[in-house]
Write a protein that binds this DNA or RNA. Structure first.
Length: 899
RNA sequence: GGGCGCGUAGCUCAGCGGUAGAGCAUCGCCUUCACACGGCGGGGGUCACAGGUUCAAUCCCUGUCGCGCCCA
């Protein structure tokens, strides 16, 4: 077979992925007796393409799912995509625009045909890209939020919630996106800081010529719709004006001056204009004071006068209906300029201050949102939120890291009615039909609605279906059960609901996690998942958020092309600590690619040295300390990795595996193995080393497989640990029985320290690596002596020793010395050792030991410490002190020998 | 304004009551028959600051400063 010098991901990855997929390795098994383990993929937008955020979240999920699958769980990782209402509609509209077509000309049905056509042609991008990452999703189960089954679930939920009074129609202010011309939910609004002005406007007091009440506003254009001025009830400045009227400039309407705690005496002038139809706070004031609520902006945010036409009144020097009529149809920002100019002309502007304020923008359309009074469908989220809050409080669902529960609670406890209707075409059409008189019939289909209408009217009536569609997140909220076949009672629903863990970013806790909790509990009677693992954001190397405008976007597919999916995945694991954002650049991935190569080369070494899989090998029979030590270290690494994964500590999982492979297996074990495998070595020992090397390499491949599936599978297959593409289905390593691991650890620890000591001294003495020198041991215990004897070949090789022996008599002149436990290591380096420098060096060593000893001594001489600290801590310190004192003695003796 | 998180080696980050760690970078030596995407060795930190609790604080508490995010 002979492995190439480096692993070739571009060739291996597609081949292995196809192999896994073809063998059904990704499939769950509903008929299995195994304990299920379920992760629902956060369905990416069907318009999406793989970005670093996806790479992070799906690497984490795939690592978990592969690990649990190896542990013998019946793993379901449910794939699918989201129809992404607004995003998809925008993509297709843009496409049509390039052909010079407007969707309105095309008509709803034709347009939807085009969207489906687009989906068929281009909707598979993201799922293809997920495969390149190595994602072991159960593809035959792939779902789409608009497919028949999921649409059925949506209708079922809508109709049920409606019948329970939890979905209803309401006329109230809604966030309106004038660009997309649809209502959006509170969550789809993001506040952006905008530098603008604060206009102080004079509203004349009725019946008192020359007296004004000055209101401060950031939105002068909405004054056309003002129906009151509000002041704080305790504000002395305006006390006499409450209950009287102001004349609304330009319009000429009489507006009452009302007392309401909404106005803040500290802010502006303490008096605020009230436009109930275009501001959420003003709407509240309007309701409390029973004010008219005329809309003066239309759905495109242009001035419309229909609702104020009849109040327009000419007032000399104050209001001019003709001016106002001239504003009809003008854009809100145009109108603002014109209105301010006119007010200035009328000397009704007191002053204009520069002002920075938070302006709500639509997160998709990117333009300022306009609060608009419309009738929409709402979901009573407050009722649904209650059991969801309780579920987290009681620990039925746990957030990791736990602090995110606070975020969840804060939002859920103050949840607002959820506006679920959207004035779009692409999405789940609302299952509501209207009779000629506007009566609403909510039903799962037109026939059922007709039946309801018949019962209501006593005769058949023509019904018209609601034009609107549902918020995309409405169907996403059902994802944990709708994907399993609900509302049908399938085996999958019984078996895979609730899921085990939901993996996602904090940015969609509200959008998605909270809503799945609400819907899951309401319809399934149980939470949708036991654990919510919240990971951070991917940022660039300097910690900046990635964005198109900054030009700092890193494309995961390019990283995969350059370094392989394993390198990218391992990097992500290594950098994913709890509650931390992931700062990632190409150089980090390149660094971890070295680890992939290191593993590959370790395997090459094995191959070259005739290390082959030996299925008959029983680790419990290993006799050599080297092998027992390695097996023990391997047990530790696997145990630590399991604990780390259990706790979602991907960073620790990566670190433990990395250390074990690189430091333990490669740097020490394989180096120690070299003399044991050399020509002329004991063949029985060599056979045991080979068997152990192969056994532990197998453990390593299994250990790393969840993070680095490709290279591990390739090596697994090439070495014949199992059938081709079988590693994915192999069991997670179990601890091996190791005979007297304690003794093996002690022995190898001693050899490693001895070699380290010799290397260190030689380096400091500038002994060229090519120059061997003797290693002599003085005052060595019989145990140390026999270890030196047993490990002579390894010490020769790794410490460049020409010989290793005990020293009884005089120390050769010009020797360097170092202390190892009770023994002193002597390196005769005649001509290389500067006696003075050596004295200084040993002196420093002694000082270091003395310093440590002083610190410990100080502690121990503190009566409170000895009295109050736990006995084992005191004892440990006593032992440390003894150790330092012994070391000082040896160093003293070494110094004396130099004289 | 409210809430959350973070300030530990040049960089990225672990550790979170009892001897300050890793990776990368850096410096020196080494092209030794798996690997220069490598090997060996070294240097580098008053753990943001100030108080407090404790026998003992990087770790717990309080405050201050700086940075970031979320909500208003």
């Amino acid at each position: 077979m002979t492995l190439d010098k480096t692993f070739a991901p571009a060739e291996a990855e597609p081949r292995l992925y196809e192999g896994w997929e073809a063998s059904g390795a990704f499939a769950c098994d509903p008929m299995s007796n195994a304990d299920p383990f379920t992760i629902m993929i956060p369905p990416p937008n069907v318009t999406g393409s793989l970005h670093m955020g996806h790479a992070l979240t799906f690497t984490v999920q795939d690592t978990l799912i592969r690990w649990r699958r190896m542990q013998g769980r019946d793993a379901l990782w449910q794939p699918g995509t989201d129809h992404a209402g607004i995003a998809t509609q925008m993509v297709v509209e843009r496409l049509l625009a390039s052909e010079g077509i407007d969707r309105r000309d095309l008509g709803r049905d034709k347009f939807l045909e085009r969207v489906w056509q687009w989906k068929a042609e281009s909707g598979g991008t993201i799922t293809r890209q997920l495969r390149r990452l190595g994602s072991s999703l159960d593809w035959p189960r792939e779902r789409f939020t608009m497919d028949d089954g999921l649409s059925e679930a949506v209708r079922e939920v809508f109709v049920t919630l409606h019948s329970q009074g939890l979905i209803y129609r309401d006329r109230r202010l809604v966030n309106w996106d004038p660009k997309l011309q649809t209502a959006i939910s509170d969550l789809e609004v993001e506040n952006r800081e905008v530098r603008g002005s604060l206009w102080h406007l004079r509203y004349p007091i009725e019946g008192e010529p020359g007296r004004f009440i000055v209101v401060a506003t950031t939105r002068p254009e909405t004054m056309l719709g003002d129906t009151a001025v509000a002041v704080h009830p305790n504000d002395e400045r305006y006390r006499d004006l409450v209950g009287r009227f102001a004349i609304l400039p330009l319009v000429g309407r009489r507006v009452p001056i009302v007392a309401d705690t909404y106005s803040d005496p500290e802010k502006g002038t303490g008096a605020v204009k009230i436009t109930p139809a275009h501001d959420f706070n003003d709407f509240g004031v309007g309701q409390r004071h029973d004010l008219p609520m005329p809309s003066i902006l239309d759905k495109q945010a242009r001035v419309t006068l229909a609702e104020i036409a009849d109040v327009l009144t000419a007032v000399d020097g104050i209001a001019d209906p003709d001016f106002v009529r001239g504003l009809d149809g003008r854009d809100r920002f145009d109108a603002r300029k014109a209105i301010v100019a006119e007010l200035e002309r009328l000397e009704l502007v007191e002053k204009i201050e520069p002002h920075t304020n938070q302006v709500p923008h639509g997160d998709r359309g990117g333009v300022p949102v306009e609060p608009l009074l419309t009738t929409q469908w709402y979901c009573n989220a407050a009722v649904l939120a209650k059991p969801a809050i309780e579920a987290v409080e009681s620990g039925k669902t746990v957030f990791v890291p736990k602090q995110w529960e606070n975020t969840f609670f804060a939002w859920m406890r103050d949840i607002q009615p959820w506006c679920i209707s959207r004035q779009l075409w692409w999405g789940h059409r609302i299952p509501a039909w209207y009779g000629p008189d506007g009566e609403v019939f909510v039903a799962k289909d037109a026939d059922s609605a007709a039946t309801l209408a018949l019962a209501h009217y006593g005769h058949a009536e023509t019904l018209v279906q609601d034009e609107d569609v549902l918020d995309t997140w409405f169907s996403s909220a059902l994802w944990p059960f709708s994907t399993l076949g609900w509302p049908e009672r399938t085996r999958e629903v019984d078996r895979y609901y609730p899921g085990d863990v939901l993996v996602t970013g904090f940015d969609i806790i509200f959008f998605w996690v909270a809503r799945m909790m609400m819907m899951g509990i309401h319809f399934m009677g149980d939470v949708p998942f036991r654990t919510v693992y919240i990971h951070g954001l991917v940022r660039d190397e300097r910690g900046q958020k990635m964005s198109k405008s900054k030009g700092n976007i890193i494309d995961p597919l390019e990283l995969i092309d350059s370094f392989g999916a394993d390198a990218l995945r391992f990097t992500i694991c290594a950098l994913t600590g709890p509650g931390r954002d992931v700062k990632l650049g190409a150089s980090r991935v390149q660094d971890y690619r070295s680890f992939v190569t290191k593993l590959w080369n370790a395997a090459r070494f094995c191959e070259i040295n005739g290390i082959v899989v030996n299925k008959d090998f029983d680790p419990a029979t290993a006799r050599l300390p080297l092998n027992r030590w390695l097996l023990d270290a391997s047990n530790t690494a696997v145990a630590e990795a399991s604990v780390a994964l259990e706790a979602y500590r991907f960073d620790e999982y990566a670190a433990t595996s990395y250390r074990f492979v690189w430091n333990t297996y490669c740097d020490w074990f394989l180096e120690f193995a070299k003399p044991a495998l050399a020509a002329g070595a004991d063949p029985v020992a060599a056979a045991e080393v080979r068997a152990t090397a192969a056994h532990v390499l197998g453990t390593i491949l299994r250990l790393l497989h969840p993070a680095m599936p490709f290279v591990t599978e390739e090596l697994w297959d090439r070495f014949g640990y199992g059938e081709v593409c079988s590693l994915i289905g192999t069991s997670w390593p179990q601890p091996d029985a190791v005979d007297d691991a304690q003794a093996a650890r002690a022995e190898l620890d001693w050899v490693v320290r001895l070699i380290g000591l010799v290397r260190s001294v030689r380096n400091e003495m500038n002994v060229p690596p090519g120059t061997p020198a003797p290693v002599l041991l003085r005052d060595a215990s019989p145990e140390a002596a026999s270890r030196a004897e047993r490990w002579i070949d390894a010490i020769r090789r790794l410490a460049r020793a020409s010989e290793v022996r005990l020293l009884d008599g005089e120390m050769p002149k010009g020797s360097a010395q170092a202390v190892l436990d009770e023994a002193t290591v002597i390196l005769p380096l005649a001509g290389l050792v500067d006696l003075d420098a050596e004295r200084v060096r040993l002196g420093k060593e002694r000082e270091k030991a003395a310093g440590e000893a002083r610190k410990v001594q100080q502690k121990l001489s503190n009566a409170d410490f000895v009295k109050r600290a736990p006995e084992d801590v005191v004892e440990e310190n006593r032992e440390r002190l003894a150790g330092y004192e012994r070391e000082m003695e040896r160093l003293e003796a070494a110094l004396a020998r130099l004289a």
